[in-house]
Simulated assay, not measured.
Amino acid sequence: MLLQPKKLKYKKFQKSRCIKKENSVTSIKFGNFAIKAIDFGYISAAQLESARIAINRVVKRSGKIWLRVFPNKPITKKPSGVRMGKGKGNVDHWVCCVGSGRILFELGGVKPNLAKNALKYASSKLSIKTTIIGVY
């Protein structure tokens, strides 16, 4: 099940620039290890879900995972072969705008080498450059 909000004020948003540097969620709060974004950009709900499943697969559901981002921005797309005009397309997928320095995933309750392997495998599923940080 992909992540998406239950209710929005507007069904379709305008495209906006993604924030380049994050100010709010830049340090580990819940777990011991985390994936931190180096680059900025959009991450889709499908990428987040596949990264979460990858972490669960490696740690064998032993630790706790915190997802620190949520895809709340709809991206619209018109079908292929449709002429220009005639309004905006339907919602195609959901993304979250991520700035550099943002914590994406946190992981706790597992051994350090297992956590690093899981987060490395999960970061390969994401479309932006990331690094793994830890609090020992």
Rank of each mutant, 00 (worst) to 15 (best):
T76K: 08
P5E: 01
K36I: 04
K7E: 15
W94Y: 10
D92Q: 12
R68P: 12
L8F: 08
K36E: 14
R83S: 11
I35R: 02
I38Y: 05
G63D: 13
I43Q: 00
I128M: 10
L126T: 05
M1Q: 14
M84L: 15
L126S: 12
I43T: 02
S124C: 08
Y121F: 14
I35V: 08
D39K: 00
F105L: 09
K111G: 06
F33Q: 08
W94I: 08
I38T: 06
D92M: 13
A45F: 00
K125A: 08
D92P: 10
E106H: 02
S62A: 14
E22R: 07
K116Q: 13
T130Q: 09
P5Q: 12
G101T: 07
K73M: 11
Y10K: 02
T130C: 07
P71T: 12
F30W: 00
G85H: 11
K77R: 14
A118M: 05
P112W: 02
I38K: 12
R57W: 03
C18A: 07
I55A: 06
I43E: 00
R61H: 11
S27H: 05
G134F: 04
P71G: 15
F33K: 00
W94L: 06
V58H: 00
S27P: 03
G101V: 13
L119T: 06
K29R: 00
R61S: 12
V59S: 02
N117M: 09
A51G: 03
K7Y: 10
V59G: 03
K7S: 08
L8E: 03
R57C: 12
I132A: 03
V25F: 00
S27N: 09
I19W: 04
K60E: 05
K36Q: 07
T26S: 04
N56S: 06
R68G: 07
Y42M: 07
V25G: 03
W94P: 00
G85W: 09
V91P: 06
V25N: 05
S100E: 15
V95D: 07
A46Y: 10
Y42P: 03
A46I: 13
R52H: 14
D92V: 14
Q4H: 09
L104Q: 07
A115V: 00
L126Y: 05
M1R: 13
I53N: 11
K9M: 08
V58G: 04
Y121E: 05
A37R: 01
I132V: 15
F105H: 01
T26K: 06
E22H: 00
E106C: 05
D39G: 03
C96V: 07
T131S: 10
